[in-house]
């Protein structure tokens, strides 16, 4: 898929002008990732921000249970991967791997830092894109806690937790 066309389909990017989207597109590298390829590892820091162009990405936690890894969630085209690690400069809490053949556009750390830290109209619009994804993440985790708090019984609370951890 054309990256520019994808940007236009994502509400988070709607504030960016065509010129800004052109600049962002030029800074990104689009690459195919085969099924099962891990492109961000748990305990290592992210070196790129990834935008899912086509296909899906599984977010995996390797130590969630005695049974081994757990798929926390599956992400879809238009979603950004690697944000938390990039912004905090800390190792990722999860692994990210391609589910089926997946196309990702990556933005190198240096370009990300420039866009996230600088102050211009372009970077401000980019920061808003980032903020909106973070708000989505925040609402997701608080909804899980609320679901557990107000579960009818312990069994239902366990189910809410289990569904979150297993990405159901």
């Amino acid at each position: 898929m054309n990256l520019h066309k994808l940007f236009h389909s994502i509400p988070e990017f709607s504030e960016m002008t065509n010129a800004e989207l052109d600049t962002l597109e030029r800074a990104m590298v689009v690459r195919d990732h085969p099924d099962g390829e891990t492109f961000l590892c748990q305990t290592s820091g992210a070196n790129d921000l990834f935008l899912i162009v086509d296909g899906e990405v599984e977010i995996v936690h390797e130590e969630s249970s005695a049974h081994g890894e757990q798929i926390v969630k599956t992400m879809h085209p238009g979603e950004l991967v690697g944000l938390h690690s990039l912004i905090t400069h800390r190792p990722s809490d999860v692994c990210c791997r391609a589910k089926g053949k997946t196309v990702l556009a990556s933005l190198p750390l240096s370009a990300f830092n420039l866009l996230y830290q600088a102050n211009s109209a372009l970077t401000h619009h980019f920061q808003r894109v980032i903020a909106r994804q973070l708000v989505r993440d925040y609402r997701e985790v608080t909804d899980v806690l609320k679901g557990m708090m107000f579960a009818e019984d312990e069994q239902q609370a366990e189910q809410v937790l289990s569904e979150h951890i297993s990405g159901s």
Binding site: H61, E63, S64, S65, A66, Q70, L83, H84, I87, T88, D93, Q127, I130, A131, L134, V135, D137, Y138, V141, T142, V144, L145, L161, S162, H164, I165
Partner: peptide, 21 residues
């Protein structure tokens, strides 16, 4: 504000992962 959100998300997820074990 974004940094605050990330801090809360990471802390919450870490605790949820630990609790699930």
């Amino acid at each position: 504000l974004s940094d605050d959100l990330i801090g809360m998300c990471r802390s919450t997820n870490k605790i949820l992962f630990e609790r699930s074990k």
